[in-house]
Design a protein around this nucleic acid. Structure first.
Lengths: 245, 245
DNA sequence: CGAGGATTTGAAGGTTGTCAAGGAGGGTGG
DNA sequence: CCACCCTCCTTGACAACCTTCAAATCCTCG
C-alpha cells in the first residue's frame, strides 16, 4: 500500500452523499476530517487478512475490493463486492472476519477505529447511515444466498452480470435502453469464487452465453449486453424486477 | 394467527436483554410498551408473504420462524432462521422482501411500524442495538454464503447442526461439555431449503452421520451430539473456532 | 384401522468438478 | 523487434456428487 499524502476535503469527495458520512452536517464532517486519512492499494494486493487487528474502518472512494473467506483446504468464497462508497470494517470488533483484497487500484478513506467508534456514539447521523447501509448489505447477501443455493451455473453467471450491469446503470454510467456495457473487474477465478463454481465452469458458461449472442465480449473483461431483458430471462428471476440489490 | 390477549410487562420478558430493546432504560421501555402487542402463529402458518405491506416490525419472543425466497418455478432458498430475540422487519421499508413462516408455534412482540420508526429516531439506544443485531445477521448471512457455495452436502448438514447447537449453548439450554441435545424445529425439506440441497440428500447425509455415531436421533427432530468436537470436524471449518455466528 | 404427510432408501441420470493440455495476451529482456 | 515467459483463459475427457424419479416405510392423527 502507499500513503496518499494529499489532503482532500470532504466537500469535493466523490462519495460524499453515498458513503457512511452521507447524513453528516458540516460540523460533523469537521470531526471526521480530523481522524481521516487516505490510502491506496494496488490491484491484487491485500488490504486486510482475516484475523488481523483492524486499526481503522474505511470507505471505498475509488476502485473495487472483495471480501472473502477461505477454508483450511483452500476453498474460498467471496461474500462481498465492495465498490465506491461501500464501508469496510465493523465498529466494535477488533479483528477482521474476512480477507479484504483490492481487485483494481483502490483508494480508501480511512478512519482510526477507536475515535470513529467514539464519534458514532456522539453523532447519531453516522450510526443511522451505517444501519441503512448494513441493511442494504444484508439484503444483498440474502440475494446471493439464493444464487448460491438454488441457481444453475448458467443462471449464476447471468445473475452476476445482471447485478453488475444494474449497478452501472444506477450510477448512470450507461443508458437504460439499448446495449449495455459492463466492466467486470473480476478474473474468471474471482467470478468462480463469487458464484461457488470452478473457473472452468465459469469459462464454459460464459462461452455458451457468448455463442448464443446473449453477451458479446470485447476483450476478456469488457462485456456488452445487447438485450438486457434477454439476459435477465437467463437469471431465472422474476422478470418484473423481483430482485433486491 | 391469534391475538394473545394477555398484557405482558417487559420486566418479565424472556428476551428483555437480547432483543432490539436490550439497551433501553425504563423510560424508553414505557414508550415501547405503548405501541407493542403480542401475536401468536401456529406451526407451519405464514406470518408475512414477500411483497406484503408490513404494518409492524417485531421481536421473536418464543418459537422459530424462517425467512425465505421463492423463484417462479418453485425453487426456494431460506435466507434466515429467526429464533427467540431475533428481529423481524426492516425500519424504513414498506413491504417485506421475504416470506416469513412459523416453523413452530411462534409468539411475536409486535410494534406498529410507523411509531416504531419515529421512536428509533428519538431514542438512539434502539437504533444502536438494531445496528449490532443487523451486523450479526450480516455475519451469519456471510457464513451461510460459504456453506452454500463451497461445502459438500455432508459438511452442510454438520454445519447446520453445529450452528443450532452453538446457539442453544449460548442461550444456556445445555452445558458446554459432554453430549449436546439439539432441538431442530425443521422438517427435512426445510433443512434442504436452508442448505441448497434436496430433501433426499439431506435424509441420506443425516442417516450417514447417524450410522457413524456422530449424531444420535431421538425421534425425528431431536438430535444428540455425543461429541461436539467430532461434529465440528465434519463441518470442514477451522477447528479452533474460526466461525463467526 | 386407515389416511396422509414425512422420511428413508434405491437406481439411474445429469450437472458440475477434476485433471490435463493448449491458446491468447501482455510485458520483459536480449 | 522478436523470442520468451507468465498469467489468464479455453476446451476436452472423465469422474464424482448430487438430483431426479420411484417406491417402501414410518409416524401422527382422526
Amino acid at each position: 500500500m502507499s500513503e496518499a499524502a494529499l489532503e482532500q476535503s470532504c466537500d469535493s469527495c466523490p462519495i460524499r452523499h453515498r458513503a457512511v458520512c452521507a447524513n453528516c452536517d458540516a460540523d460533523e464532517l469537521r470531526l471526521l476530517e480530523e481522524i481521516k486519512y487516505y490510502r491506496t492499494y494496488e490491484s491484487g494486493h491485500p488490504i486486510i487478512w482475516a484475523g488481523d487487528e483492524m486499526s481503522f474502518v474505511a470507505s471505498v472512494v475509488r476502485g473495487a475490493a472483495t471480501l472473502s473467506q477461505t477454508m483450511e483446504d483452500g476453498r474460498t468464497q467471496m461474500v462481498g463486492l465492495l465498490l465506491a462508497s461501500d464501508f469496510i470494517g465493523r465498529p466494535g470488533r477488533e479483528t477482521s472476519a474476512y480477507d479484504v483484497t483490492a481487485v483494481s487500484e483502490v483508494t480508501l478513506c480511512c478512519f482510526r477505529r477507536r475515535p470513529f467508534e467514539k464519534l458514532m456514539h456522539s453523532t447519531p447521523h453516522i450510526a443511522q447511515r451505517l444501519l441503512d447501509m448494513t441493511l442494504d448489505e444484508l439484503d444483498a447477501a440474502r440475494e446471493w444466498m439464493l444464487i448460491l443455493g438454488r441457481k444453475t451455473a448458467r443462471e449464476k453467471i447471468a445473475s452476476l452480470l445482471a447485478i453488475v450491469a444494474r449497478r452501472e446503470l444506477s450510477i448512470g454510467l450507461t443508458k437504460p435502453v439499448g446495449p449495455v456495457m459492463v466492466d467486470l473487474p473480476l478474473t474468471r477465478e474471482a467470478m468462480a469464487d463469487y458464484l461457488g463454481l470452478t473457473l472452468e465452469t465459469v469459462s464454459r458458461q460464459v462461452s455458451a452465453l457468448k455463442r448464443e449472442g446473449i453477451i458479446v465480449l470485447h476483450g476478456k473483461r469488457r462485456i456488452e449486453v445487447p438485450d438486457m431483458a434477454r439476459l435477465i430471462e437467463e437469471t431465472g428471476d422474476d422478470v418484473d424486477g423481483g430482485v433486491v440489490a
